[in-house]
Design a protein around this nucleic acid. Structure first.
Lengths: 148, 148
DNA sequence: TATTGACCTTACAATGATTGGAACCTCTAT
DNA sequence: ATAGAGGTTCCAATCATTGTAAGGTCAATA
């Protein structure tokens, strides 16, 4: 199977498959005589694993850990569970942050006439900082769930 | 006021102030004879505006729009409100996505014994894809709230 | 057989917001 | 005079992903 087929079968783009290989998340694929990457069903299975883990919001680093646990038949489920719980906590934190933003903004929008007049509590609020410090991480990416 | 002072006063790091200037989000600061950036209270006010808008999760592009509206005393509040509502929708969408991830993962964690044994429904699920497609954007950054 | 079009290869750039560092200049206080 | 704090520019890294350019390969068709 070539990379295009593997991409379709796994849901991971060919671009990303190459990237995952380059960064060491997955083992380098076999190569055909002419240098084409060749994938087995097992490889596709691994890629699907990666895809699903991404869908659950895990970072690539964490997926590497998950893959290692997946392959280690002697793992302790406690370790996996711990990772899952930690990730849920990170997700919930992010959700809380976003909810605070949404709530603040929704409140402001409710206070705004939203007509032809220029008076706007939304702008006034952003300008004067009437709402709480809203100490968000003000950085959207990454869930900062890094390996120490 | 030098950039360090402006940074402290506005809550925007000196690094980011330079970046915002470079990208045109804020006007280039005045310069002293020796080339130091010099900031007025008004400049700091603007930077604070930017900071608060970031805290509300707006992208830099959107903040540019907000700044333009803020400066335009002839604006119609409807325009601002529309932006706010659109942003709230984007936030809610992101929240929904994250919640789905958290719920799925939490359910899996609940099903996992989390002991010394290797059997782990979390890994099995990720491997076999028993849970729904969970068609998340699988890209955390940016709220994709772009200007068309 | 020659050509076309789809697919593969590598390598590099851009995204978005932010941080880090290096190399160098300026100000202030001792 | 010198040290230290803080300013300047420029370049690189982060994270996951996409885009593009230049070139090689494969299958089928005219």
């Amino acid at each position: 199977m070539n990379i295009g087929q593997a991409a379709k079968a796994s849901g991971v783009s060919a671009k990303m498959i190459r990237y995952y290989e380059e960064t060491g998340l997955v083992m380098p694929a076999q190569r055909s005589e002419k240098g084409y990457r060749v994938y087995s069903e097992k490889d596709v299975h691994t890629l699907r694993f990666v895809r699903r883990a991404r869908d659950l919001g895990f970072t690539v680093d964490r997926i590497a850990d998950l893959l290692a646990l997946w392959r280690d038949t002697g793992r302790q489920s406690a370790e996996v569970k711990q990772m899952a719980i930690g990730h849920v906590a990170a997700l919930r934190k992010k959700i809380t942050d976003l909810e605070e933003m949404a709530a603040t903004l929704e409140h402001l929008a409710d206070c705004c006439a939203g007509d032809h007049r220029p008076d706007c509590p939304i702008l006034s609020d952003i300008a004067t900082g009437a709402h709480g410090p809203a100490k968000s991480a003000h950085r959207f990416g990454a869930l900062s769930d890094k390996k120490s």
